[in-house]
C-alpha cells in the first residue's frame, strides 16, 4: 500500500502555532533597521576614507616630480665631531 505522504505531513503539521507576538516582531524590525543604519554609516565612512586616500595619492603624484630634484642635490657635508 502506498504511503499518503501529503496526508501524513498535513496531519503532522496540523499544530497550533504559538500566539503571534507582534511586539517581538517589531523589536526585530527595529534591530534590523538599526543594524542597516550602522552598516550604511560604516560604508559612508569607508567611502570617505577612500576619497581621502585618492586625494593623498593624487597629491603624491604631484610631489613625486619633486623627489628626483632632491635626490640630485649634493649631500650635505658631515658635521665635524665635537671634541
Amino acid at each position: 500500500m502506498p504511503v499518503d505522504l501529503r496526508g501524513a505531513l498535513r496531519t503532522a503539521l496540523d499544530v497550533d502555532a504559538p500566539p503571534l507576538q507582534l511586539e517581538r516582531i517589531g523589536e526585530r524590525v527595529a534591530r534590523r533597521v538599526r543594524s542597516l543604519q550602522r552598516r550604511r554609516s560604516r560604508s559612508m565612512l569607508s567611502v570617505a576614507a577612500l576619497v581621502a586616500l585618492i586625494a593623498v595619492f593624487a597629491g603624491g603624484q604631484e610631489t613625486a616630480v619633486f623627489y628626483p630634484a632632491i635626490a640630485a642635490a649634493p649631500a650635505p657635508a658631515p658635521s665635524p665631531l665635537a671634541t
Binding site: 500500500m1 502506498p2 504511503v3 499518503d4 496526508g7 501524513a8 496531519t11
Partner: peptide, 8 residues
C-alpha cells in the same frame, strides 16, 4: 501510526 492517517 493509524492506517487511515498514513495509507491510502
Amino acid at each position: 501510526v493509524p492506517a487511515e492517517v498514513l495509507f491510502d
